[in-house]
Simulated assay, not measured.
Amino acid sequence: MHVGARPDIPWEIDVTKTALIVIDMQNDFVREGAIMEVPMAREFLPNMKRIVETCRKRGIPVIYTSHVLYDDYDVSPLEVAYNPKLQRNGMRSGTPGIDIVEELKPLPHEMIIYKHRYDAFYNTNLETVLRNIRGFHGVDTVIITGTVTNVCCESTARSAFMRDFKVVFVSDANGGLDESSHRATLSTIKSVFGRVMPTDELIAEFG
């Protein structure tokens, strides 16, 4: 259905033109005691798994991102400056910390975008993948799930909007560091950048 077809929402989801992005659901963010542990990401893991499985059944491409740092040089020096513990450990290339958690393990054909900034579009091939994964310009809508809500997830959602993708931000499938920042992002996205909905509503709209 075209934009503005229903007065209560700006646009409806067309599953034939949609892709799912799973942001940074890697061991160093999700596992208990991990260096960048986000308990809310672990709490919402069952919802993310349900969305992934539903998308696979509906033929919606699933794309993963993984945030990667290096021992040899600071590929993201300002990030490390704000998080000094990352100077020596965490999200290191070649370690299990950058692997997607087993519960959401990518299938062999599913893409993992390795990134060095919060925004998954920045200096990666994510946009190229989205523009072609369902045929030439076949994707016009992206579903954002993962962690951290107000950092990598919000940054990527905003960047998708700037590239004229319709954004679906799943309220109970994005894990934040705390409830207040999580809620603030949901409010911001809902106001100007995309549609915010819970897992049940998203799957129901798939039809």
Rank of each mutant, 00 (worst) to 15 (best):
F165Y: 15
M91S: 09
G176L: 09
L107I: 02
T95E: 14
D164V: 03
G138W: 04
V38D: 02
I112H: 00
D72Y: 08
I133T: 14
Y73M: 11
P46T: 13
K166S: 04
L130G: 02
C153Q: 09
N89W: 00
T156V: 05
I60A: 03
F136A: 07
N132Y: 12
L126A: 09
F161T: 15
E127N: 12
G135R: 05
Y114I: 03
I100Q: 00
M162L: 14
D140F: 02
A157E: 03
V151E: 05
S159N: 01
V139H: 01
F161V: 04
V148R: 02
R50N: 13
R56A: 02
F165T: 08
P77W: 10
R50D: 13
P106K: 14
L69T: 05
K105H: 13
H109A: 06
T54H: 02
R56E: 02
N47E: 03
T145L: 00
N150G: 14
V52S: 00
M48R: 01
H116F: 08
T128W: 13
V38R: 03
N47R: 13
N132E: 08
V75A: 14
G59R: 10
S159D: 03
T156F: 10
V38S: 13
T156M: 08
S171M: 01
S155K: 05
M162V: 11
A157G: 15
S93D: 15
A41F: 12
Y70R: 11
Y122N: 07
D140P: 09
I144N: 00
A157R: 04
H116G: 05
P61E: 10
R56I: 02
T54A: 14
E110N: 06
T141M: 12
I112W: 01
L86S: 04
V139T: 08
T54M: 01
R31T: 12
F169L: 13
P84A: 10
K115D: 10
I144L: 03
R56Y: 04
G146I: 04
S155N: 13
G90I: 04
A160M: 04
Y73H: 14
Q87N: 14
V168L: 10
Y114K: 15
V62D: 00
E103N: 15
E79Q: 11
T156Q: 08
A81N: 06
A157I: 03
D74E: 12
F161Q: 05
V101H: 02
R117H: 11
C152N: 09
D72H: 07
I60F: 11
L86A: 08
E32I: 13
